[in-house]
């Protein structure tokens, strides 16, 4: 027995190393899932506050660029307003929203911290549980898809960026409507890969890629990017398509968190259907 203690004491540094590395591995595994332990939310809140202070300082530098982007978006939205169309017939067909249900709510938020240089990138935003944000909500920017909410604290939320090796988004090619999956390969923050498009489809360069709405997270028709290049992997049935992202993740500032009101209803329906099978 004494020998065992003497042995442990002699190599105490090594045993301590093993112990600490085990803690590290446990932390990594725990952090991998969609949900994180409650105690880490406290640190999220602290980290969020630190980044917020830092951002308030650096915001002024990019004010001009942000104003231009917001103005662009405003003009685009204004174009969709009914009163920006010229009515050339006497019978005006007005879309009455009272007969439709709202399906999506958009919660505006600001990015307080983001990275693009790692294999798994995350984004922090300045809205959280108090503003109605929940894990697994979709996030879009002025130019298109941004990411998915990972975890929320009271006033902040962390997102899986589109530039994350585990994030996949169901996508649709504009011209022929074929559906595939968009994934990041971990290299350039300007490009993603579109997979699962079969060789029968006709593709064109500079064709736009939208979200398909199949994923239930993202609304339909949110732009992802444009086709930069494509070739067939021989021998194989699928295209290898490189898509240039429409969102510049390095300059990301204002985003919208999309809350799907019927998300739970659809989810429970799908769960019930799959249970029966």
């Amino acid at each position: 027995m004494r020998n065992i203690f003497a042995f442990i004491f002699r190599y105490h540094a090594f045993f301590l190393l093993l112990m600490l590395e085990t803690v590290c591995v446990a932390l990594m595994i725990q952090n991998n899932g969609f949900h994180r332990a409650a105690f880490l939310n406290v640190s999220d809140e602290f980290v969020g506050k630190s980044y917020k202070v830092y951002n308030e300082v650096t915001d002024y530098i990019r004010l001009g660029e942000e104003n231009r982007l917001l103005a662009d978006e405003n003009s685009r939205l204004r174009n969709t307003l009914p009163n920006s169309y010229y009515a050339d017939t006497s019978s005006i067909k007005t879309v009455r929203d009272t007969i439709r249900h709202t399906l999506y709510h958009y919660i505006p938020a600001r990015v307080i911290q983001t990275s693009t240089n790692r294999l798994n990138n995350y984004i922090y935003i300045n809205k959280g549980r108090d503003h109605g944000i929940k894990p697994r909500m979709a996030v879009i920017g002025p130019n298109g898809v941004v990411g998915i909410v990972k975890s929320v604290s009271d006033h902040f939320a962390s997102l899986y960026s589109m530039l994350h090796s585990q994030v996949t988004v169901s996508a649709r090619v504009k011209q022929n409507g074929s559906r595939g999956t968009v994934k990041w390969d971990g290299k350039s923050p300007y490009y993603v890969n579109l997979e699962e498009i079969t060789r029968q489809e006709q593709l064109h360069q500079r064709d736009t890629i939208f979200t398909s709405g199949v994923s239930r997270l993202f609304p339909d028709n949110i732009p992802i990017g444009i086709v930069e290049s494509f070739d067939l992997i021989e021998p194989g049935n699928f295209y290898d398509i490189r898509v240039m992202l429409s969102t510049d993740f390095k300059k990301l500032d204002y985003v919208y968190v999309v809350s799907n009101i019927m998300h739970e209803e659809i989810d429970s329906l799908i769960n019930r259907t799959e249970d029966v099978q």
């Binding site: 105490h12 540094a13 301590l16 190393l17 600490l20 590395e21 803690v23 590290c24 591995v25 446990a26 932390l27 990594m28 725990q30 952090n31 880490l40 640190s43 602290f46 980290v47 630190s50 980044y51 990275s115 790692r118 798994n120 995350y122 962390s158």
Partner: peptide, 28 residues
């Protein structure tokens, strides 16, 4: 001492982890 170095190493990496959302990777 070696044991203190290890604890400091873990703590230092863990602090950076908190800020980079890379739980455990810098610490390891």
């Amino acid at each position: 001492p070696a044991w203190f170095l290890l604890f400091l190493g873990f703590f230092c990496g863990f602090t950076v982890d908190l800020f980079s959302n890379s739980m455990g990777m810098h610490a390891a």
